[in-house]
Structure formats: structure tokens, C-alpha cells
Design a protein around this nucleic acid. Sequence first.
DNA 1: ACTTTTATTGACACGATGTACGTTAAATAG
DNA 2: CTATTTAACGTACATCGTGTCAATAAAAGT
Lengths: 201, 201
Amino acid sequence: MQQKIDPRKVRTRQMLRDALIALILEKGYDAITLQAITDKAGLRRATFYLHYKDKEELLFTILKDTFDELVSEIDKLQVGVDISAAQLAIYQVIFKHAQENADLYLSILTGRGASTITRYIREYLSHSFLEEMCFRNPDLELTMPMNVLANFNATIELNMAIWWLEQEMPYSPEQMAEMCTKLTLNGLQSAFKPITAQMPT
Amino acid sequence: MQQKIDPRKVRTRQMLRDALIALILEKGYDAITLQAITDKAGLRRATFYLHYKDKEELLFTILKDTFDELVSEIDKLQVGVDISAAQLAIYQVIFKHAQENADLYLSILTGRGASTITRYIREYLSHSFLEEMCFRNPDLELTMPMNVLANFNATIELNMAIWWLEQEMPYSPEQMAEMCTKLTLNGLQSAFKPITAQMPT
DNA sequence: ACTTTTATTGACACGATGTACGTTAAATAG
DNA sequence: CTATTTAACGTACATCGTGTCAATAAAAGT
């Protein structure tokens, strides 16, 4: 006997998936209860536990499949060795996909829970950056919006720090500061106008 | 009459703050209930609601004060106009502070809730990057660990997208892809060894 | 038709939330 | 010192979501 999966299992899981997606669009991820999911799917709440631990585990199976599909799409693009062109293609796939599923991702990526905390901190860092920028370099010319730069800067500061902590701090604060400075500054400089001859009065 | 605050109010709030911090270190942010906080503080649960809406609001007041202090520390450093030196100083303050409060930030930044979702996605993107990197450029020389680069790339991809969605997509996917490519690539290239003459066999 | 797997049903105990209200204690004004 | 205001206490109540269980029913595979 080959490991043929019971079609009822597949059907039930698909119903749970559909129910979760529908509810996310209806009322937002955080507000969803298991009761609501199983009601929507026309199943009992106890049934849910036969397949998933909680609504998060259900969501992860959906995300994994979605991302696997996106990756294979990107692989099919078969850009050459041009890194810049490849990166551009990847971003285009990412942002187009995000736009197409905007409601869904808004709900699961920006809801309550701990992400509210990370968002709060990121906005704080971004605001700090803007203030500092407007204070020190009020008439600097840029090739892209300053709020993009502020968020770019805040995102790296916050998330590199989170990652570093998760890895149990394998590098010293100095090493991290150096690496992040290099990575961040070479990126940020691309936002300044090439070179302007600076003349004092 | 000046707006003097009742000392009991100040004392109660301080007790709640201390209790929350202590509990975060003890059992992790997500596992904390209001009952646990007020028990620790030696107060009634109903009292909590006289001051804060929920434990998140309480945490935010603590974070705001902490960050305000950090910012004023950074302001006091008073580095010159050298952007690179200033950025280095800021990162040093950030990572040192994160290290000193590692337990606390690990708890509030990496717990369950929606942040589990963002972490999952970030790890997915990071893993994808590593696979792609090891597959296409197996013998590339780097000036810093590849996992740092992978996380840097994943962080920007994910968080720029989240921010973009939060702002109600003020730019097209193409614009975002362009800006992110510029910002990301100029940063990533700083991790490669200057220039190596490439000779085909 | 028979067997095995899976879903259904209803119920239960548990824990956390938010609120309400009368009482007690503490701080401040006069 | 006394009166008044304000905070915190003590307790209770209704609500909701969770996780689990055991007995029953249904449906697919052979």
C-alpha cells in the first residue's frame, strides 16, 4: 500500500484553508477564533484539532505553499548572471504578489500580537531618523522619498538586532555595528545625488 | 493649583511596570496575564484597568521611556558631520543596549502572536537566499558571514513590503522594486571583495 | 457487506477578560 | 484636626475562547 491520503482529509483541510482565508479578508486575522473557522468550514471545532494545533499552524501551511509557488515562478524567469537584473525581477514578483493579496497580507502582517510591538519600535526609529535628518540636513537633495529611506534605516536597525538576539549574539555589538554600518551606508548613499560640488560662500 | 499627581498613582504605576518587567524575564511576555501582573505587583486586577487598557499599553509606556533615554544618550555623543562615524556610534548604542536587555527584548520581540508570522517569513526568505547563493555562487569570497547577508536581504524584502502595505501602497510595485534594488544592492556589494579579475578557462 | 478511518455531537472544566459597585484607606484642602 | 476628594480594595458576575473527551454516526476503501 502506497501512502495514499484519505480524500476526506484533503477535503477537510482545504475547507479549513478556504475558511481561514475568507475570514481573514472578512474580519482580520487576529479577530478570528477557531469556532469561526470551523463554523465557516461547516465543521465542528473538535475536528480542527485533528488536523492542526492552532490557527497559526493552519496559516503556515498556506504560506509555505504560496511561497513555494512564488519561488518556482522566480526560478522559471531564468535571468542571466546579471545580479541587478535578477534582483529586480525578484522584487517585482514579490511586490506584485503582495499587491494582489494586499488585504490578506495586511491582516496577517500588521495585526495585533507581538507584531504590534515591532511595528511600534520601527515607527519610533523611523520617526527619530526623520527628525534627525530634517534637523541636520534640512536641504539635502534626494533621488527618492525620505520616508522610504527612514523606513529602510529603521527596518535594518530593528530587524538586524532581533535576528542577532535570536542567534544568541554570535558576534559582538561592535562587530554588528560595523557590519550594519557598512551594509546600511552603502545602501543609503545610493539615494543621494551623485556628486555636487560644494562651495562655501 | 498645579497639576500635582497623586503619589499613589505614581507608586501603583511603578509597581505595575516593575511587575511586568520581572514577569517578562521570568516567563516570557506572551505567557503573562493581567492577573499575574497584578499579583506580582500586590494589587487587585481591577486596579490595573484604572491605569492601562491592557498589558501592551503598559509595555509601550516602558518602551517609550527607554527609547527616549537612548536617544538622548545618542544626542549627547555629539559626533561631527562624518555620517559614517555617526552611524557607527548609533549602532553601537543600539546593540549594546540590546545586549544588556537581551532577555527582555528576546521575549517581547520574538514571542508568539503576529511576530511569529513575520519571523517565519523572514526565515523563509533568508533560507531561500542561502540556497540560491550556494547554488549559483558556491565559491564566492565574502568579507562577512553569509547568514548576516541572508538575513539582511530577507529583512529588507519583508519589511519594506510590510511598510509599503501599511502606507496603502503609495508607489507602484515597479517603483518599489527599483528603489529596493538600488538600496539593497549597493549595500550587499559592500560585502564582496573589491574586484577580482575573472578569467574563463 | 464489512472494516477502518474520520467526523459529529454535546458536554465539561478551565482560564482570562472586562466591568460593576459598595467599602476602605490614603492624600490633600481648609 | 476635620472634611473632602481620590485611589485602591474586595468581590462578584457575565462572557468568551480554549482544549479535551467519550459516545455516536457517517463515509471511504477493500
